[in-house]
Design a protein around this nucleic acid. Structure first.
Lengths: 168, 168, 168, 168
DNA sequence: AATGAATGAGTTTTCATTCAT
DNA sequence: TATGAATGAAAACTCATTCAT
């Protein structure tokens, strides 16, 4: 049987709160108690929605990757895409910090890796249709790397665009 | 008086062990017990060498950044440098994973940030002498981004080199 | 909302147990583990009721001073009062030992000092209404001093009473 | 064989330092490391002079009680004696705080009790020769009680003297 | 669905003590 | 005599988890 609507709503709230915690203190600093407090619940109640901490983490991974890449969303041409990315990184730096944290965690956690890779595949495919084959991973590397210094995203991605165009 | 040679040696051992722990389990999974066990010491003895965990962390940061960038080491031209980086990433992927973990941690920890930024400055200066002004941050972003998928380092950095040359 | 009745009851139990520990081994020997064991709880559960050790200590101070001086309780004349004190010291020597321990601790701990002084003020006021101004502190000194040799409380306080009467 | 002079000197230094520690933080806060540091020694060296912590404590007890009551010292009449006590409490409040701490510790520590009682006997004898039999313990109680509020020593002991004289 | 009591494993840290040098 | 390395026991505290209600 499907989860009730109310339950789904609460789950979303908790995931969002957990995401915010990670954004603030990293996965290292993720505490069920803090998450519960943000939503105004007792910490033990969290277990009604997520059996264990790992399940909540999975929820965060799902949420964060979805914020970055919603499957099926329209993408536009390369210029549009890089511009959108630059804007997104500037406007939501925390999201990209969390995404990088996810990349690292994926290294050690198969479940996280599965979700992250699955979502990244969508992005990779979209890029493959817009740049030369050899440049896909380069673009990805730049985006990931510049996530760590969000303030430079606009400048760096603009440089990248110029270089890619020049080589076309 | 300076610390004895024996003490310095032990400290290095401990930092190295701690670095390995972080490489395996992330900062999140860094346990003084594990570090001590790796060196064959009682965990309380670690406090003989490092007053608290944070001091050990500082040691790790110092060690890792130094592995990547030893101030004063000869750099060569851009081709050499990018080639060296590609090799280093391929050969010591764990080091670059830890470095990225450091970038994230620097976000929330001023002490870590200070060390990381100081070491990065050396690298940035070296790059500034080898690429157009606007490209420094682009190179940095690529290196950082490709740290997360070390297997692609060779390919990606090679592409980058080609693009940078084409634009020169 | 106020703490539940059940919670308050447990807190009282714990404070009482902690008080007994101090009576037996002094503040120096106060261990959360022992306190928990006395009540039949896991030591970590104590933190459910008192965030930290200091909070439990505060509870002890509150409890002990209240055992000695309940604000608003009827006092009687000086004879009654000194007699009551002599009896109390003889019957509950541990309480007075703890109270003296509190006096010492108050020297170094502002929180303890605040509670102790506040309770003592009530006693001081009651005395002020029953002896000549200059004798208030004398009575207090005798009571405190004789706490350390409870067996002599009856004799010493009786002597004090005689002297005070003779000077009236 | 007797201990060398140098050793005795060091022992005295250490006991004095330990006494100061207790005066500042209570027995509860007595740390061998702090004591050693005050004397400028490594903490493990303390064990050359005192096999264990308890031996150092014994030294403190001996030192403190001797500061208060040196056997064989001239005493003078009651007025002199009470005046001397008032002065001593005012001038060296820490000594009297430590003495009270000793009284409490004597409750639980037979070794401490033995020393404390032995020294107190000398004082008690001297008092017995100067006040009525029933008043000895009263004087002792006052002195001990007023140790806890050294600022009032002059006033309180003066009152006591007046009362004792009036009853003679 | 929600709470709060209780647990137990685990973490850093402290400290007296011992031992080799 | 003195040091510093090393230990081990014990401390407070944290936190995910379970369970009865």
């Amino acid at each position: 049987m499907a989860r009730s609507q109310r339950t789904e709503e609460r789950r979303r709230e908790l995931v969002k709160a957990a995401f915010d915690c990670v954004a603030e203190k990293g996965f290292e600093g993720l505490r069920l108690r803090d998450v519960a407090a943000r939503v105004g619940l007792d910490h033990s109640t969290v277990h009604h929605y997520f059996p264990g901490k790992q399940d909540l983490v999975t929820g965060i991974v799902d949420y964060a990757t979805q914020q970055f890449w919603t499957p099926g969303a329209p993408v536009g041409d390369l210029d549009d895409h890089l511009g959108m990315l630059a804007r997104l990184i500037s406007e939501r730096p925390a999201l990209f910090l969390v995404l990088r944290e996810l990349d690292l965690r994926a290294t050690r956690d198969a479940e996280v890796r599965a979700i992250v890779e699955s979502r990244e595949r969508g992005w990779r495919d979209a890029l493959a249709a817009r740049v030369q084959p050899g440049h896909v991973e380069l673009v990805i590397a730049v985006v990931k790397g510049v996530s760590l210094t969000p303030g430079l995203a606009g400048q760096v991605l603009s440089q990248l665009r110029t270089l890619l165009k020049g080589s076309a």
